[in-house]
Design a protein around this nucleic acid. Sequence first.
DNA 1: ACGAAAAGTAAAATATAATTGACATTTTGT
DNA 2: ACAAAATGTCAATTATATTTTACTTTTCGT
Lengths: 64, 64
Amino acid sequence: MKNKKMKIARAEADVSQEKLAEIVGVTRQTINLIEAGNYNPSLKLCTAICKALNKTLDELFWEE
Amino acid sequence: MKNKKMKIARAEADVSQEKLAEIVGVTRQTINLIEAGNYNPSLKLCTAICKALNKTLDELFWEE
DNA sequence: ACGAAAAGTAAAATATAATTGACATTTTGT
DNA sequence: ACAAAATGTCAATTATATTTTACTTTTCGT
C-alpha cells in the first residue's frame, strides 16, 4: 500500500524526494519506493525519515 | 541499544520469545536479536510485533 | 538441587533492502 | 508553450536483515 502520509508530510515540510534522501542518507529511489508502497524499509530508515520530517513512527508508518 | 521496552511489553503479555516469534512469523533468534539491540528490523516486522503485543510503533520502537 | 523451559549467542547460508545508472513521465514556474 | 525540476520506474548489483543449526547459560517450578 502507498504511503500517502509520508508524501503529505514531505510536502508539508517542502522537501523533494531527492532532498529528503540526502538528509537521511539513502538514494532518491529508496524514498520513491517507500512512498510508492510495496516496500519494507528498515526501522532505522523509518526513524530517520520521521526525524527529518518532524513526525513520529505512528504518524507516518502505522497502519491499522 | 537494547530494546528494553519490547522486552517489558512481552513480559506484560506473558509470551516467550519463541511464542512471539511464532506469532509474527520469524525465528526466535530474530526476536532475541531485536531485544538484544544492535539490530535493524524491518518495518513490517516491527508492526507485526506491535500488534502481537498490543502496542504501537512509538511505544516500542521510538527513540529520541 | 535438579530438570526443563527460556534466553543468549555464533557462524554460514539465504532473502531482501538499498544502491546505481539510466530513461520516461509528470509537475511547476515563467 | 517551454524548460527545468521533480517524480515514477526498471534491471542489475551490493549490503545487510533474517534463517538455520547448534551450543551455552539463565531462569523457574517442583
